[in-house]
Design a protein around this nucleic acid. Structure first.
Lengths: 115, 115
DNA sequence: TATGTATTAAACCGATAAGTTAATTAACCG
DNA sequence: CGGTTAATTAACTTATCGGTTTAATACATA
């Protein structure tokens, strides 16, 4: 049960409703009801999604009268970006050629390739 | 099951064991047993993780005698990267604002410069 | 004070995730 | 063939997820 930061961030992002909420918040701070409006689900459901996002530190919340305005807190996305970045060269074309090359020499030598 | 592609990719990545498996595969193709070795969990558990990664198209698998070699298929990470990229401006702006703020209080106060 | 509005909490439900052990398939080797 | 190794499948448990409905909380205002 992954308690690490990156896992909870990715887990929070792995839901289209929550990503849509973040997209809305990228346009600016707003209320829970306003966030819930586009979705065909109950308000408590949206409230739970917001709690997940808050727990992942992807949003922050304030208090103004009876409203709890939500705003984006995109810092954790930086962590995701740098994690993904580790693999960038692997999907870029240079690597594809390297991969083909490695497969060739791997096929060529049939002796024990340990590790 | 979140049916959209990005959700299943992020969901597959939201587990430290699976990310460790990808990190190992970034070093090169290898077998299931070899992938399982560092983890304190049963082989079927690792096999399930691999199935999740395969279903998310993050790995591909071959057949060589009794081995099922796994290799990285990093294409979906590109999708993650470009999704995250949408928000880069937001966290950079925040950083800029924080930077400005820090410079201001730095100017205001004489010195309380930690880090 | 009473009432309406915004939001969350509580209790519940069905589906899925993540792990286990035990059994099964598949291929190699003696 | 029989035994060993590699890996998956099956069956099961437990926990978490995503949603519901109903109830409670917090605040504003008439």
């Amino acid at each position: 049960m992954p308690t690490d930061h990156l896992s909870s961030t990715l887990s929070a992002l792995a839901d289209p409703t929550r990503r849509a909420i973040l997209a809305r918040l990228a346009l600016g701070e707003t209320t829970v009801s306003e966030l819930a409006r586009p979705f065909e689900m109950s308000l408590p459901a949206v409230s739970k999604h917001l709690k997940v996002l808050e727990h992942a530190h992807l949003i922050e919340r304030g208090r103004e009268a009876q409203w709890r305005p939500c705003r984006l807190a995109p810092a954790p996305l930086k962590e995701v970006a740098s994690w993904v970045e580790q693999y960038r060269r692997l999907w870029e074309e240079r690597f594809v050629r390297l991969d083909v090359y490695l497969k060739e020499i791997q096929k060529g030598q049939s002796d024990d390739t340990d590790k």
